[in-house]
Design a protein around this nucleic acid. Sequence first.
DNA 1: CACAGGCCATAAGCCAGGCTTTGACCCTGA
DNA 2: TCAGGGTCAAAGCCTGGCTTATGGCCTGTG
Lengths: 308, 308
Amino acid sequence: MDPRRLLIFRTVARAGSISAGARELGWTQPAVSQHLQALEREVGSALLVRGSGGVTLTEPGRALLAHADAVASRLQVAAAELADLAQLRAGTVRLAAFPSGAAVRVPPALERLRRIYPGVVVHLTEAEPPEALDAVRAGDVDVALVFGYDDDVAADTDLVLVPAGGDRSMLVLPREHQLATRRRPSLRALRSAEWIAGCERCRAHLLRSCAAAGFEPDVRHESDDYVVVQNLVAHGLGVSLLPRTALDAFQHPEVHVTAVEGVSPRQLYLAHRPGADAVPAVAAVLSQLVAFGTPSAARRAHSSGTPA
Amino acid sequence: MDPRRLLIFRTVARAGSISAGARELGWTQPAVSQHLQALEREVGSALLVRGSGGVTLTEPGRALLAHADAVASRLQVAAAELADLAQLRAGTVRLAAFPSGAAVRVPPALERLRRIYPGVVVHLTEAEPPEALDAVRAGDVDVALVFGYDDDVAADTDLVLVPAGGDRSMLVLPREHQLATRRRPSLRALRSAEWIAGCERCRAHLLRSCAAAGFEPDVRHESDDYVVVQNLVAHGLGVSLLPRTALDAFQHPEVHVTAVEGVSPRQLYLAHRPGADAVPAVAAVLSQLVAFGTPSAARRAHSSGTPA
DNA sequence: CACAGGCCATAAGCCAGGCTTTGACCCTGA
DNA sequence: TCAGGGTCAAAGCCTGGCTTATGGCCTGTG
């Protein structure tokens, strides 16, 4: 049964005549008449009795009208719900982010998003980039905030990656380290230092950078927790590289942070499945996160306090 | 929102890919793809994410699928109910009939109808022809079994009248009336008798017939109840004309019934609104009542007893 | 590594469903 | 009797929407 004809029938039944129904539909009377004939043929019974002055329902017509009303009302509810989703009065987005990103980049973006679109809710999950990307691929998460070194993420993926700013790797030294007074030491100056490495990919980046500087670092400790790393440094147990973002989230008072020569910054990306950004709520989350993509913007938002 | 596209979307969502959905619909893949794009444009959001190996629903897609399922199931229910009505597994018909017709013509027709189509229920109401026709016009009744004399009903009406047999007017005499031995007396032979008239229109018919025979009858009593009339006759209080059908319903043992010259038969009709016979249940009732339209057929059915 | 086979989108072309136009009829009310 | 409402039927045209053809992308396999 063609649902369009069902709705045409409903319009006519409620309008009281084929002509009135046609006017309501913006069509001519014969067009509607033909549809009704087709519907009656299809259904195998007269649905309405044509009399002068309009039309009266038969028993099958009355039965069908009830169903038509139900269908029409459901269509209306569907349209309303979809309009809410399209116009960002509703919707939920599942977001994954690595820890320091979740601490520094995400909150101001979500705050602003909530102010503009109070109906959109975002579920934030903390996950390291590899797991976050897998979750996006599996459809468990809509958007992932990830980072990569030297394009190791950007290459060869079925996901869309939109750049969300760079994240400089900073040298973290004990406060009284001999290099703490140098404005911008070179990596090579630390060739004989004891090192504390981060996560697996951060460690790989450290090794690459040191290799480029001509030495292999003496890695004594490993932790992907930037608080742990800084405490180790503060106690003089080694030096480390930490991204700017992690230091924005937390900086130990007893460590010295400085830029360093010869270390490429890590790159932040927002990952989503191709086409997923055509969902308005997802697009809104992406755009807010990109707007806070530069560290300076993130700091600016952070220091500005809570807006009205 | 075009409901056809909603159903197409549902098929695709359940099939898991656009191609599979297209196969299910018997269409080519681009046709379905175009519909989905149109739907997404209309709705203002992506509904599904196209990936290799199929398609995944977005949040708006999941919301819409629920509504689409509801619409589809309601359509299915509607189709099933309409099919029942069309194939006479269900349906109710409101029937009006004048008293003797209701007594003699209707029961065998309904018995047969119930045997063939047990799901079809008929509501019988007793009503004299004028009221019955009004009820049909008003839509309170679907079919009316009526009678008319000399085409007084057939002329000038907006209803369809299908002839349902004639109904001879018989002369009803007291058993020992002097004319009771005559095989086919003429009306004129009763010019000085005392008369008992029936309903308004029967009385008019009596007056017309007598006028044609050259006299005005001496009407002493009036009743449209054929039992009352026959009791009056049996007690010698007058003579009367009664239709064959009424006498089939009840014949007083103390009266004599004979054909009479110069009186036209009354005509039975089934009345319905034009087009109403395109409702299968109505058509079935009509055809059963027409099948028992001739008095002989009615008597035959009556004497045959209850079939298995 | 190439290639087949699944998925998808786009572009172009063409057919027919379905709309409009036109004309006729019927009924009602002025 | 005519104007105005309702209906159906026939014919013609237009465009929505289908098909065909092509190409891109990803996966799995020889």
